[in-house]
């Protein structure tokens, strides 16, 4: 199999990996780079568990060939260094239950603008499946992060 060198920025640092050009970005992240925070739920871009940011845009890393991120900036959940307020809010608001969708959910939520409506949040997260929460607690975490009022039925306990 042919291995190419692919150079990209990963969580702020330059990475130069050898991989088959069609290798999935998720495999390069998890296996070559040892960053297992990006999760695989379906392998076909349907569940969003593997969401990472490429040049600031959320993408499903299970359907992105690594060659496509050459020269790009890739940010994974590890790139937030555990310091992003959304991370703590996901735990406090129980937006994370089993947690397997959480890294992808957080990365997708980062694309939201400063004052999202509940519908904006719904739309931004429409490609991310969660089987535990029914999503309401995720909305509470995201709206709180953005300082937006929480609708009564998605309200705090």
């Amino acid at each position: 199999m042919r291995y190419d060198r692919v150079k990209f920025t990963l969580n702020g640092a330059v990475r130069d990996v050898a991989a088959p050009p069609a290798a999935r970005l998720i495999d390069v992240l998890r296996e070559e780079c040892g960053l297992t925070g990006t999760k695989e739920g379906c392998g076909e871009g349907e569940c969003g568990a593997c969401t990472v940011l490429v040049d600031g845009e959320p993408v499903c890393s299970c359907i992105v060939p690594v060659a496509q991120v050459a020269g790009a900036e890739v940010t994974t959940i590890e790139g937030l260094n555990g310091e992003h307020p959304l991370q703590k809010l996901f735990m406090d608001e129980v937006g994370a239950q089993c947690g397997i969708c959480t890294p992808g959910m957080i990365m997708a939520a980062l694309s939201l603008g400063p004052a999202p409506s509940l519908d904006d949040v719904r739309t931004a997260l429409a490609g991310n499946l969660c089987r535990c929460t029914g999503y309401s607690a995720i909305y509470r975490a995201v709206m709180k992060w953005r300082g937006m009022p929480i609708p009564e039925t998605a309200g705090a306990t």
Binding site: R30, T36, T76, E78, G99, P103, I106, T157
Partner: peptide, 20 residues
Amino acid sequence: SVARKDGIGKATGGAKYADD
């Protein structure tokens, strides 16, 4: 609704699932 014993790992990607 006290702080959960899970810690922050599920939100940082640090929690280890089987495939990790």
